[in-house]
Computed example of a mutant assay.
Amino acid sequence: MKDEELPRRLREAAEAHRPDRARMLARIERGMADGGPAPRSVRPPRAVRPWLRVAGATAAVCGVLAAGAFAVTSAGDDDRARGGPVASAPSPAASTPAARGGLRPEDGPLWTGGVVDPHSNAYWAQSNVTLRTTEPLSALTVELRVALTGGVNSTGSWRSLPEPDFTVSVNESGGYLVYRWTLRAGRSVPAGTHTFAGQYNHAEGDRDATGDYVTARAVRASGGKASVGDYFGRSR
């Protein structure tokens, strides 16, 4: 071989060489198994890292939502399995005396009746309770219940009997505005006809008072108890 041909052949051999990747990886693995230095870890490209964070957060949120949905579904199924009732607020009609057997306006010496005062108007009303007794009373409690229809709120009350003889309260209970007059200990109610009245605002219009009613419980001075009640009609 001529000396001038050697450079050309070396150049051709170099151009024809292709590295054997598999052999190189095998050599690296053998080196690691022999305790050689481990290759440095490669950090993911920056373009990939935000995507990985979003994917991880999405997976976490999905897991929380799935767990919550499972808990709610399980609770509902558990209630149905036990046959647990669904709680609901009682309506005024369900708690009226009609649902408990009705009222009687007269009992022994005691009688009562209720009516909406004719001077009531489209925004305000007064419910009048008449109580009549043929005997003196040593104890008495009168309760006027006005159904909480639109806009009902108390504006006051009064009674024909002496004010110091009674304690008065007004509160909302069971879908009603409740006026309560209670005779004080040591006082008495004479025989005769007496009036108790509750006043209140209401939504504009002719208010239907058919859901309103009055009850009275008394102890006769001569002994024995009496209990009466009555419903209201429409305003008139």
Rank of each mutant, 00 (worst) to 15 (best):
Q126S: 10
A57C: 03
G83F: 09
A33C: 01
L52I: 13
A125G: 04
C62R: 12
G102D: 08
A75W: 11
D79P: 00
R40M: 09
G31L: 15
A99C: 07
G76C: 04
H119C: 00
W111E: 06
H119F: 02
W111I: 00
A26K: 05
P105L: 12
A94K: 00
D79N: 10
P92Q: 10
D78G: 14
P90W: 10
A67I: 06
V86D: 05
G101P: 03
A26N: 04
S88E: 12
V48N: 02
A59N: 05
G31C: 13
S88P: 00
V48R: 08
G35T: 11
G31M: 14
P39M: 13
P97H: 05
V115L: 04
T73C: 04
R100A: 15
P39T: 09
A87H: 03
W51Q: 14
M24E: 15
V42I: 12
T112V: 15
G84S: 09
A98T: 07
Q126Y: 00
L110D: 02
R49V: 15
P90D: 10
R43T: 11
A60P: 00
A69N: 06
D117F: 03
P105M: 12
A60D: 14
T73I: 02
A87I: 02
M32T: 08
S91D: 13
S41E: 12
F70S: 06
P118M: 01
C62P: 00
G84R: 11
D34Y: 05
S91Y: 07
S95F: 02
P45E: 10
M32I: 13
G84E: 08
P90H: 08
P45K: 04
W111S: 05
L103K: 07
R40V: 12
R104P: 00
G63C: 10
N121V: 01
R104D: 13
A38W: 01
L103D: 07
A89S: 14
G56M: 12
H119Y: 01
A89P: 06
V54C: 08
S120C: 04
P50T: 06
R27K: 06
A57Y: 12
D77K: 06
L103W: 10
Q126I: 02
G83E: 12
G83S: 07
R100E: 11
P97S: 09
T73F: 08
T58F: 07
T73P: 00
E106M: 05
D34I: 01
L103T: 08
V115K: 01
Y123T: 14
G108H: 07
R30H: 10
E29F: 11
D117H: 12
T58A: 15
